[in-house]
Amino acid sequence: MAQKGWKEISLAGLVADPGNSVAYETGTWRAFRPVIDFDKCTHCMFCWIYCPDGTIMVEDSKVLGVDLKHCKGCGICATECPRKAIIMVEEAKAQRG
């Protein structure tokens, strides 16, 4: 991507596009992927409140899954899940299915 010149960029480095970092996909950092066993999940939301990256996707107070575009694979969710409903799977293996 061609970078913009000084006349084209915002004055003083202001960013008027709040939360635009979602375009930066930190999921590529991941070595281990969290996989949720929905048979065990009680939707207690501990994974959600402890996630450093806000990647636990939620709708109507239910866990839908993990935003893999941004999840860095720290494994906090798996460690803290009281039902052990989340396991960390090696990313390469997970990608192979």
């Binding site: 970078q3 913009k4 010149g5 000084w6 960029i9 004055l11 003083a12 480095g13 202001l14 960013v15 008027a16 709040p18």
Partner: peptide, 19 residues
Amino acid sequence: PTTFGAYDHWDYFFEHKRQ
């Protein structure tokens, strides 16, 4: 909501100084 004082790396700092 506007972000003031974002961190500039080598890729933008020079241009902001030119401004």
